[in-house]
Design a protein around this nucleic acid. Sequence first.
DNA 1: CTTCCACGGGAACACTGGGGTG
DNA 2: CACCCCAGTGTTCCCGTGGAAG
Length: 405
Amino acid sequence: MENLFEDLISDGGIFANKEVLRPTYVPENLPHRKEQIKGLADILSAALKGETPSNILIYGKTGTGKTSTVKYVSNELEEMARKRDSNCSLLYINSEVFDTQYRLFAYLARVFNRRVPMIGWPTDMVYSEFKNGIDAEKRCVIVILDEVDKLVSKGDEALYNLTRINGELKNARVSLIGISNDLNFTEFLDPRVKSSLGEEEIIFPPYNAAQLQDILDERAEKAFTDSAIDDAVIPLCAALAASEHGDARRALDLLRVSGEVAERLKSKKVSEEHVRLACEKLEMNRVAEVVKTLPLQSKIVLSSVLLLGSERNKRRFSSGEVYNMYRRLCTHLGMDALTQRRVTDFVAELDILGLVNAVIVSKGRYGRTKEISLSVPEECVQPVILEDYKLKAISAIRVRTQSTL
DNA sequence: CTTCCACGGGAACACTGGGGTG
DNA sequence: CACCCCAGTGTTCCCGTGGAAG
């Protein structure tokens, strides 16, 4: 009797090491980023000489290698610091996780062995705990704030304090590296913060198709077994990703999923067809993932658009229609409806997430609305929404409205 | 030019989960 | 223990505004 897993683990030998294709993997060679690596290293080398490096601001869209580059350079720097016995450390902080002033300082204070609760204290107290903690010995600390725009969206006080902290320290020195997806985010900053944080700027331009191809080639070498992929596969992945803002992460995902698809289809080789399937699958997953993590109210708003779509034979609806349907849904579900104002915010969010398309149109004499339409296939959204146990009752509405047609 | 309706910015408020103090 | 302080989040309230049909 053959074991159930026999087939599944004796892979067709497509992958040699799949980890290489994961976004968290930091390669030892980053193609087409020589300039940025050198720039970063030049600035940070000051830390090894016992000076304080300038603050750095790093710009670039998603998947342009910002995080990988910074991590790579940090590793090198830390290694050298260890060799030379200089007290210099780097702290990587994802500002999406520590997205408020309080949380950021509380985390930093904890890193320097101060006991600080994650909520409850006045912020200035947390701040001075952190300050005392870091100043306890002579050292140089480089704080890396990834996705720094997320932190700024809730006020720039945190950054303001961080950029001024050196003036209050006796022993330690702090420099900052801010990483941002948004090229314009400094516009909302206090000018003092802006000039201090942006002492040095490094830009990561999107990769073009040829560069993406180099990246993929390099990784594919390690990830796949010999001649497991068709010659056309990598150029295709590169081209598809390049058409979407040159996102290397996406290109790598595409390549990995293509391989997985081929594996599942028991194919010996990854072909162009597999890439196309992978592309669809990724898009489906993306939508499903986004919908799943939506807040409850937002799901209801989305359902309203969905229901309107199945009730009338239209695709675009005015915000009034959507809001009415939303109220109906809420009463049906036995929950309190939010105000129209609030719902417009949800619609705007859904718009940004790309689940819905909303355009402001002025109907002259008859005022102004947003025309809202679903911008992803219905069958991607519907099942995911019904997964939410609080929204099960929606399926009942659906049946009823259809039978009244 | 008026008129209409929802858009969307901003202030205010409510609530939560934690602190310290007497 | 009761009580008030604090940051953070989600919400409502208020209101000025845009812009084409009438």
